[in-house]
Amino acid sequence: MILADRLAYASRWRRRPLAEKSLLSAGLLALALALPPVPGGALVLGTATALALAAGTPASAWIRLMAAPAAFVASGSLALLAEMDAAGLHLAADHGRQAGLVALRALAAIAALLLLAATTPTPDLIQGLRRLGVPAELTELALSIYRFIFVLQDTAAAMHAGQAARLGTDGWRRRVRSAGMLAASLLPRALDRAHRQETGLAARCFDGSLRTLSPLRPASPAGLIRVAVLLALLAGAGTWA
């Protein structure tokens, strides 16, 4: 299961209204982009991390979640860390200050988004998009893909275990060959499963639309105000400093 999704389902904030979490995340993202990286970016990064931990995200899982995008940011910042001229490749004249600021701003923005991802299951986000007026065709497709990912993941895991049990993953040549065969047989299986799912949906009077009732979690004015106050405080602190 995808790490962010697993964390979101286990999060203490899972049942908090989506509007509050979205406002918080979008607000933090805006502050990360608008405020100077020091201290604004650092404040946003620290706040998002503290809130994620408060929502029940284990610190180790939060670090793992941040690791991949952080590595991407780090590789991108390398270009700012070094300069190249007639004398050759050497450390930037600002001793990497610019690279550090860019990386801090990027990490703050990432943390703001991951706070939402680690506290809100993907289907809730898709439902939110539907309420915002995104066409049902797109949201239904996204939900179907989301569901299918896990079904295919199970199928692929079972096939991989079957290959491994017959020594199909011993040595890289066999691994590559087995992976190719797995990928090739996954497509027809996916199509077959899709066909059977169509039969299952038809049995429940499917008329071309995948309408379902989602739980009601209206945002409270008090909750929205709390989020707005927090964002205002952060904006004030970031600007004043």
Partner: peptide, 22 residues
């Protein structure tokens, strides 16, 4: 195979699919 039938994001949503179609 239940996976051939379940498509929605949660149990309650999936169960609501048929009655909504009625």
């Amino acid at each position: 195979a239940p996976d051939d039938q379940l498509f929605a994001a949660s149990v309650a949503e999936d169960v609501s699919f048929g009655p909504l179609n009625l």
